[in-house]
């Protein structure tokens, strides 16, 4: 099998929050079509790394390149165009609370995709059906449960058929069954759309079930200490990573 092309290339990335060092010297690549996991203990900077990858925070040093283009060394309009190829599922869902589920999905379609409202409405219904929320088009985010919000947010993240999907702790606050269901959905998406998927999580069940590759961020040394297939890392990774992954029963 020939190696797949690189989707994201992270080179000597250093993350700071004000004066505080979050992570340093992060270098790894994510292959196209991979499900890539960013893992590590609480407070190690997983979500912060994600915010840097999707262009919400500027890195202190280093680069993030998508198909060879540096997200931070390019002009605003190119960066916005790059961001439009992303789909992001935030930790809390981040559905726009003043809009119905259907309008949440339609907004990016009409405003960015240039779809006509009627087409967007039809497509929004399809996306909602894909995540198992057919019939909930006219509900407001406050009227549905946490798990449904996550799924609706996933439908919105897929609104523009993105090339790369980012998930921030997708299973946080979900029961094991909903969480497993979401994992299946993520696998399905990768297989059917061929999208590259980057997931921040510390949920061991998900890491083993869907992760092709993973990076482990260490909270003490403030840098990455392992990179590779989580199933392999579990046996042959550094001690901290083995301890972390060894808690999972497979």
């Amino acid at each position: 099998m020939s190696p797949r092309p690189t989707a994201i290339e992270i080179d000597s990335l250093t993350l700071r929050y004000g004066e505080r060092l979050i992570q340093r010297d992060l270098s790894f690549t994510i292959a196209q079509g991979d499900i890539f996991i960013i893992m590590g203990g609480s407070g190690c900077g997983k979500s912060t790394l994600l915010r840097h990858l999707i262009g919400l925070q500027t890195p202190a040093a280093g680069s993030v390149r998508f198909a060879g283009v540096d997200l931070w060394q390019t002009d605003d309009s190119t960066r916005q165009a790059m961001q439009r190829r992303f789909g992001v599922l935030f930790q809390s869902g981040a559905l726009w609370s003043s809009l119905t589920l259907s309008e949440n999905i339609m907004l990016p379609m009409t405003e960015i995709g240039g779809f006509r409202a009627a087409d967007a409405r039809e497509l929004a219904a399809v996306k909602l059906a894909l995540v198992g929320l057919a019939g909930f088009e006219d509900f407001y985010p406050s009227e549905i449960s946490g798990g449904m919000k996550k799924r609706a947010a996933l439908a919105r993240a897929m609104a523009l058929d993105p090339d790369i999907l980012f998930f921030d702790e997708p299973s946080a606050g979900l029961d094991p069954l909903s969480s497993a269901h979401l994992d299946e959905l993520i696998l399905e998406l990768r297989d059917s759309l061929g999208a590259t998927i980057v997931i921040v999580t510390h949920e061991l069940a998900s890491i083993f079930a869907i992760g092709d590759n993973a990076v482990f961020l260490d909270a003490e040394t403030r840098t990455m200490i392992a990179l590779g297939d989580p199933k392999t890392l579990r046996h042959s990774g550094p001690e901290g990573v083995r301890n972390f992954l060894g808690r999972g029963k497979m």
Binding site: G55, Q80, Q83, F90, S92, L95, W96, L107, E111, I112
Partner: peptide, 13 residues
Amino acid sequence: VNEEIDAFRTFGL
């Protein structure tokens, strides 16, 4: 707080 503004930004809106 709900990351709704971040969601706008990541869509490039």
